[in-house]
Amino acid sequence: MSSRPPMTQKGADRLRGELEHMKGPKRQAIIAAVAEARAHGDLKENAEYHAAREEHGFNEGRIAELEAALSNSEIIDTERLNVASGRIVFGAIVDLIDVDTDTAVTYQIVGDVEADIKKGLIAVSSPIARALIGKSEGDEFDFTAPNGVKTYSIEKVRYV
């Protein structure tokens, strides 16, 4: 098994898009802002200049972070996964029902770098993802959440 962290193809594409934006239009806008602020004179007390330089540093840091994540990850195309066993693995989209409240929620298990709970993307290393891995449709499982133990029923598993 690879020691490289997994990432979905969709997540890699999204990060590549962000990287292109950061290296292209955003970098150019920051360079222009630095040049404009520099033209205002004394750099010691020029807040615009210092803010633009700080933004430049953040942008370059994010570029390095994205490049490292993309080069170090193992890209997995979830559409090509042959999951005949019906078991939940990396990349699965899982529809869950909270047994206690009868509330539905949908999550996709993705790489750590691409996780975004607001979009329903949970990191493969998260406690709920670890609880889901290996389970199948129809299974119920307990999960220890920050506000106590929750019981979920797995309604549907799909790979898209």
Rank of each mutant, 00 (worst) to 15 (best):
I76H: 05
L66S: 05
A12Y: 01
P5L: 02
A33M: 10
E65V: 00
V89R: 10
F90C: 04
I154N: 06
E67G: 08
Y152N: 04
R27D: 05
A64C: 06
D139Q: 01
A39T: 02
R80N: 15
I133F: 11
A145C: 10
Q28V: 08
R14H: 03
E18V: 02
V110S: 07
E18L: 05
G86F: 06
H21M: 14
G57Y: 07
D116W: 01
E18C: 00
A69W: 00
E45D: 11
T151P: 03
V34Q: 02
V89G: 11
T144Q: 12
D116E: 15
V160R: 13
A84I: 15
T78G: 04
D98N: 15
V94A: 03
T101D: 07
V157R: 07
I75A: 03
M1K: 11
Y152G: 01
R80I: 15
R38I: 00
Q108D: 04
A64S: 14
S71F: 08
A131E: 09
R87I: 12
G91Q: 05
K26P: 00
R87K: 15
L19D: 08
K135H: 13
G41P: 13
H40Q: 13
K10E: 13
K156F: 10
Q28I: 06
G138K: 05
E74C: 00
M1L: 10
V160D: 15
L121M: 12
I30A: 01
L96Q: 01
H40S: 12
F90E: 03
R130P: 07
I128L: 12
A123Q: 07
V94N: 08
L132N: 06
V94Y: 09
H21L: 14
I88D: 04
G91M: 07
R38E: 12
S125N: 15
E60Y: 04
G111P: 02
H40G: 14
A32D: 14
Y49G: 02
D98E: 11
Q108R: 14
V99W: 10
I75W: 00
I117T: 13
G24T: 14
G57K: 09
M7D: 01
L70N: 11
P127N: 14
